[in-house]
Amino acid sequence: MAENAAVDTSGAAPEGGARYKRVLLKVSGEALMGQRDYGLDPDMIRQVAEEVRTVVRMGVQVCLVIGGGNIFRGIKGAASGMERASADYMGMLATVINALSMQSALERMGVSTRVQSAIPMSSVCEPYIRRRAIRHMEKSRVVIFAAGTGNPFFTTDTAAALRASEMGCDGLLKATQVDGVYTADPKKDPNATRYERLSYLEVLSKDLQVMDASAIALARENHIPILVFSIHTPGMFAEVMAGKGKFTIITDEERE
């Protein structure tokens, strides 16, 4: 974890400040579609960028991992007969497109941003270099990690947990379509209830599919709490950072 970061998993924020010093925000590619069926919605990109800017202004060091499902999803390409490795590389390239789009939106708002790709492409962004990324964040720059882990067969959820571990993040925030982790899909089951708190083992044993098992295992091994909240609620990223609003927290601790 980041040095001198006071991590409080109780849900309460220190007076006048955010709960964590350095966090990674994971945003799905689908979230950037907004109301569209495919591609990028400029209004949605702007909304996410506004959320990030607000949290940066709270004094929090922020890095991001963005999925690529709004453009291409490797596992679907493989299901249609494409070689899985090739399909996954195509998905990684889609995340670079999303990362560059988010960088443009953030910099238009005056937020200094760097994109680092696990697949080197020096003409458009920096290669992923851990120490350089940490230095960027120490200078209050937002770092967007693109191209997943750089390897096929790994999801961007795993990439998010990996980068959060490498960056010494105090929290991994997953922005989803709903305001937390539910017992079932709340869009399909009106009786689904939201969890306030879960342990990593509960997520795995209940097969809640918040993130894939390797991502959960990485977060558990490095004691990084995962906070799940809705990206569609304006201001919620900052609210969660202050220990307010609706979200589910996943930690080493069992639910009370």
Rank of each mutant, 00 (worst) to 15 (best):
A2V: 13
E3Q: 15
V7P: 09
G16D: 05
R22Y: 07
R22F: 04
V27P: 03
G29M: 01
G29C: 04
A31G: 12
Q35G: 15
D41I: 10
D43R: 12
I45W: 09
Q47G: 03
E50W: 02
E51L: 03
V52H: 06
V55G: 08
M58Y: 09
Q61V: 11
Q61C: 11
C63M: 08
C63D: 03
N70K: 00
F72M: 07
R73Y: 01
A78E: 07
S80R: 12
G81L: 03
M82I: 11
E83R: 15
Y89W: 06
Y89R: 02
L93H: 09
T95C: 07
N98S: 02
N98W: 04
Q103I: 01
A105P: 00
V115C: 04
S123F: 13
C125K: 07
Y128P: 07
A133T: 06
S140L: 14
I144S: 05
A146W: 01
G148A: 06
P152E: 02
T155S: 02
T156K: 00
D157I: 00
T158M: 02
A159Y: 06
A161L: 03
E166N: 04
M167L: 05
M167E: 03
G168V: 06
G168D: 04
C169I: 04
L172A: 03
L173W: 05
D179W: 00
G180I: 12
D185R: 11
K187C: 14
P190F: 10
R194T: 12
R194F: 12
E196D: 15
R197F: 10
E202V: 07
V203S: 09
L204E: 13
K206E: 13
Q209F: 13
A213Y: 13
S214R: 07
A215W: 06
E221C: 10
V228N: 11
S230C: 05
F237W: 05
E239F: 06
V240P: 07
G245R: 04
R255H: 14
E256D: 11
